[in-house]
Design a protein around this nucleic acid. Structure first.
Lengths: 238, 238
DNA sequence: TAACAAATTAAGTACTTACTTAGTTTGAGA
DNA sequence: TCTCAAACTAAGTAAGTACTTAATTTGTTA
């Protein structure tokens, strides 16, 4: 009974350090017992934990402490560590998918639409505290969990569809060159927007400056947009 | 005193029996005991282990089995798991650095030299079995080991110097546009060459095909070279 | 309000893991 | 051939680690 002061209802407190408050998850709000709220709180903390430590570096105990719950709850709601990781990965993918839907593909000129898409990708990847790291970890695990997921494999669809629409319009209006493969273009955009986030630490070591600095990121964003638009611009003189 | 039969002096022998000999590394060759050879064998297996499982997913026991040595040897030669990982990371970086030196910067036209550099990077990253995964893992660990290393932080120097030389020449000859930042360009090249290797599994899930297929890689290489050269080409009409 | 099912918990268990210790074996130099 | 330091080994240990079990608490509904 040493836990006397539990009544204090100390909220999870973040503790993940770096990230901007994963979600203040109302503890002891509407009701002391609430399956949905507890489940969500576990998920929020798990996302942060898996993003920060990878799968095998993550600790069930630490997630429990962060979410202020008992170990049993994790197994009650998620079954095991693998399935909790799957849930966290899917939840993280859902964020970017939702963001993508906000894009208005048919607005303005094709070149502007494309730039908007590149900028959205750039901003998302360099802003979201979990996504890039979760993807990296998932790839280190050879995608075994993404392959198991029923939702993740289709994740790129909306963005890829948008890209195809923009490309087709741009080619029709002769501002984009022909023979651009949408998939390959998407991979290039992803690479250009991903690398300085994924490899920020080793790159910082090499170039001796901080790759998360806003000024540097702003300049980098201009470059990325420039690279992509130089590539797709039609220079046939038509 | 249950250790009686030790007198039999049954040398470890092993007769190579059990394991599938992961690395033929001359065992029982020139000499049964050889510090340098043993150390190197540990390092080779450790590189593969850390690349495959990441730091915390890697197992000392598994490295011992793979290198056909006793646990104690690892601590004898490397001190602890952290320092073994550092040694493996440095060894892996050394491979790319050596490869870079083969590049002849002053040969041919600047555009061809640049393309050669891009292709070298592309080929190295998609061919070397360890490098990309080790870098990914190191970044997931927030570069704490790369920062500790005395050799790694300078790794990009040669490649970056080559890039600067090529850029300068190309701008002088008016085939490259001005105001190209070498560092930013290098990051772009790295991103374009890295992403389909680093994210091969999640991308394969999304696009439903194998991203390590030679045909696809060949096409991808053409695209990457195209993207980079479109970007740096001088289109001012000079 | 009584009763039940679901939420929640304490205290485990069985197993893994990095690392140590205290010794034995052997190549090489004198 | 003798000696000895260095290479090498067997068999631990202590501290995690994911997961379980058997019970207690509490919101809800009849």
């Amino acid at each position: 009974m040493t836990r006397a002061t539990k009544a204090g209802a100390v909220a999870p407190e973040d503790e993940a350090g770096t990230s901007p408050a994963p979600a203040p998850a109302k503890r002891r709000g509407a009701g002391k017992r609430n399956a949905a709220v507890t489940r969500q709180r576990i998920l929020d903390v798990a996302m942060a934990e898996f993003a920060e430590h990878g799968f095998s570096g993550s600790r069930i105990e630490r997630i429990c402490a962060g979410a202020d719950i008992n170990v049993g709850m994790i197994y009650h709601y998620f079954g095991n560590k693998d399935d909790l990781y799957l849930a966290a990965l899917e939840a993280s993918y859902k964020v970017i998918r939702d963001r993508e839907q906000t894009l208005d593909v048919d607005a303005a000129e094709p070149m502007l639409a494309l730039k908007a898409l590149v900028e959205l990708t750039f901003d998302f990847l360099s802003t979201d505290p979990y996504f890039v790291r979760l993807i990296m970890n998932e790839n280190l695990m050879m995608g075994r969990t993404a392959r198991r997921s029923s939702t993740i494999p289709h994740m790129t669809r909306p963005l890829l569809d948008s890209l195809r629409t923009i490309l087709k319009r741009g080619q029709k209006e002769k501002v984009f060159r022909r023979n651009i493969d949408a998939e390959n273009l998407y991979v290039s955009i992803l690479g250009l927007c991903f690398i300085h986030v994924s490899n920020r630490y080793t790159l910082s070591s090499m170039f001796q400056h901080d790759f998360s600095e806003p000024d540097w990121l702003a300049k980098r964003k201009l470059t990325v947009v420039d690279v992509v638009s130089s590539y797709i611009a039609d220079r046939s003189g038509g």
